[in-house]
Amino acid sequence: MPMISVAMFPGRTPAQKSALVRELTDAFVRTCGGKPEGVQVTLVEVGADHWAAGGVLYSER
């Protein structure tokens, strides 16, 4: 059973999250096969003060 995990900043609406989950699931099934009910997706919202790139927190940019 495949698991797709997405880490992103907070702020998306429930409708956007639902659309994302649907699109990711459809893309996986289309490219890799299987059934939609077998695809699991987790959405992890990470605040800008807990995410960094290049040694700098996004909250400090």
Rank of each mutant, 00 (worst) to 15 (best):
S18M: 04
F28H: 06
D49G: 04
P36G: 09
S5E: 11
V41A: 01
K17G: 00
H50C: 13
T42K: 14
G54S: 09
A27D: 02
G47N: 10
W51Q: 14
S59N: 15
K17W: 00
V46P: 04
S5F: 06
K17Q: 02
L57S: 12
K35M: 12
A27C: 05
V39S: 08
A48P: 09
T25Y: 09
M8F: 05
E23I: 09
G54R: 06
V21H: 01
H50W: 13
G11S: 02
P10F: 02
A19P: 03
R61M: 07
F9V: 06
S5H: 10
Q40T: 13
S59G: 15
V46S: 07
G33K: 01
C32T: 05
G55I: 08
G38M: 03
G34F: 01
Q16C: 03
E60A: 15
E23Q: 15
K17N: 01
L20K: 04
A53V: 11
R61C: 05
E23H: 14
H50T: 12
F9R: 04
A27K: 03
K35I: 11
Y58D: 06
G47P: 07
T25V: 10
E23F: 10
K17I: 00
P2A: 03
V29G: 02
A48D: 06
V21Q: 02
M8I: 09
D26N: 12
G38N: 05
M8K: 12
P14D: 07
M8V: 06
M1R: 14
A52H: 11
P10D: 03
V46W: 04
L20S: 05
V41M: 01
E45T: 06
Y58P: 04
V6L: 01
E37W: 09
E37D: 10
V41H: 00
V56C: 12
S5V: 13
P2R: 02
